[in-house]
Design a protein around this nucleic acid. Sequence first.
DNA 1: GAAATGAGCGAACGACTGTTTACTGGATGA
DNA 2: TCATCCAGTAAACAGTCGTTCGCTCATTTC
Lengths: 218, 218
Amino acid sequence: MSHTLGADQAHKPLGARQAQKLRTRQALLDAGLRLLEHQSLSSLGLRELTREIGVAPAGFYRHFRDMSDLGVALVEESFGSLREMVRAIRGERAKSEEVIDGTVEMIARYVREQRPHFRFIARERYGGVRQVREAIAGELGLFAEELASDLGAQPESAGWSPQDVRMLADLYVDHMVMIATAFLDASPEHPESEREIANIARRQMRLIRLGRLHWLDG
Amino acid sequence: MSHTLGADQAHKPLGARQAQKLRTRQALLDAGLRLLEHQSLSSLGLRELTREIGVAPAGFYRHFRDMSDLGVALVEESFGSLREMVRAIRGERAKSEEVIDGTVEMIARYVREQRPHFRFIARERYGGVRQVREAIAGELGLFAEELASDLGAQPESAGWSPQDVRMLADLYVDHMVMIATAFLDASPEHPESEREIANIARRQMRLIRLGRLHWLDG
DNA sequence: GAAATGAGCGAACGACTGTTTACTGGATGA
DNA sequence: TCATCCAGTAAACAGTCGTTCGCTCATTTC
């Protein structure tokens, strides 16, 4: 009996038997994400989901305990693809002004390329399923923690208390989620609306940055 | 045949006939809000709701076309009680620092006194029912509009473009919703956590205000 | 007073739900 | 090669669901 597999695929041996199981599991996750585009998790039925991929209802239990279990898996998948993008941005070092432009562009790209994933996160962040809410809150907490670590290391944070750095990180995270949500329900139409949202978002982040630079003035 | 009644009750004649109807309608709204404390609107059943107040399922249709119709009514009810509080704050004129304290306190009080209402708003803002999402977005848009009007009249906004004033108003509204949401899932425990959230919220709003004061510097 | 109105009821409809059961048959490991 | 495993199946269980249909009978209108 091998150990349980993590969220990322095990590339090495992987018997044909487990491979097929993972493919079915992934099909469930993909179909779930597709069906959740126009409804929320608490109204997604088990039969509705298995029907979508041509699997008997009972087969669902081979992969998930219940719907909230699948929801938590979707949260992990969503933040997985997000973290890849964030890591890329964190590597770059540039002037603060350019960081803002790069951050807004990263958010726009994430929503553009992972739209169903982020729509799911936005919808279930305060949705009806407790386990999923808590999973999202946990991931966002980790995100804010990392951001606070980054911010604290910057010269602009000299003389700041750790609590104030964390306060700023929370403000940034909340606002980045708001920006992403704004991109979400205006993007599909025309690229003009997307540029307008990006324009507002950049000015808002610039204003927050100005506040940060004058935090220790008075 | 009289005209259709608005959201606010008509105090004047009101035959015993329509009075009873309104009482049943209100019972549906109240029971709905109660049941929505632990689930989302899209998973709230018609029979589940009518059973709660001891009314036959078919009776529901005398008051609402469907569940999303009831949801929109709940949105109006929620923002109705919010506007009363906001009007009270808007009347007061004080130094900016005190305005921040008063605003945060107002948000805390709103969540404390209208907890089910705001939980509903937070949950359904990006929930699975389109009509309800749009109703909430519309109300928040009106709110931001009013706030922009207030901000534009302040001396601190001298030299600001209308677009920048609106940008600031949107930032404030989004952040106020975030603050209220933070109060929501930490309030019931102990008052200490509520004071901690208020403390963070005040510093965040102070930081935004600092950014506003230096917006035209460079 | 008689007639009209309409809020709420009770029953029936067809369809859908999550979960359990015993099973089959191809991959797996000795 | 043969016994074991286990992902997926088919069927049945006991419900719940939204919606429609006449109907009743207190209130309202004339």
